[in-house]
Design a protein around this nucleic acid. Structure first.
Lengths: 116, 116
DNA sequence: CGGGATCCGCGACGATACTG
DNA sequence: CAGTATCGTCGCGGATCCCG
């Protein structure tokens, strides 16, 4: 057995939850599933993210092997971000969560208001 | 259609991602899927969480209608936490992510070490 | 047993300005 | 276009102690 156990605090499985906990990683991954995107395209598609934070997110995802960064030596410069196989394999579980979110957010909000 | 859009920064769908981003919510939800648990049982099952943070997590999940808190007027006191239907419905997508995490964490870690 | 109260560090995140 | 640099804050989460 070479899998992790999310309930073991010493198990690095937690790092995955940390990634998902990352505010923007999920949105980046969902965005890139349709195909490679450039930096600004990502910025536009994902509302409310600053360049610095988007860069940080992309860099760490690159280090984790979830996506690749390809620079084209052109003028003006062009950089494309592409999901790896690993990144793509994460899309299915994440989109399930996203779908749940879109369907159930109203319930959650109504619960919150009830207790207000 | 009355669903949200995760890519809209003004859409409250983001609150769901924030919940999932919460370090402990996911683990609490996965733990409770087997049935109700008491406070200390949760603490034990989820390693590394302090009482304060666990309380905070449980309270906010209660406000969101994901679980219920039931106090038994006994000595010693007993408090049970139970998932609501809404909470249970979130289990399926989350366990998919957890399964992915357990299977792929090694790949991620090896990627990280390569770039070290 | 199941918390509440308090203090606090630290890192994520943001705003703004600038550059190859 | 695709970032980097700098600065600031903000609140999550941890540590510790205490209580009904």
């Amino acid at each position: 057995m070479d899998t992790g156990d999310v309930f073991d605090p010493n198990c690095p499985t937690r790092v995955v939850l940390d990634r998902i906990g990352d505010k923007w990683s999920v949105l980046v991954l969902l965005s890139l599933d349709d195909g490679p995107l450039r930096f600004t395209e990502l910025r536009t598609r994902i509302g409310g993210v600053t360049p610095k934070v988007l860069t940080q997110t992309l860099r760490s995802m690159e280090l984790d092997g979830l996506l690749t960064r390809e620079v084209f030596a052109e003028v003006p410069p062009r950089v494309e971000y592409t999901l790896t196989d690993l990144g793509r394999s994460l899309h299915a579980p994440l989109s399930a969560v996203a779908a749940w979110a879109e369907q159930n957010v109203n319930k959650i909000l109504s619960y919150r208001e009830k207790s207000a």
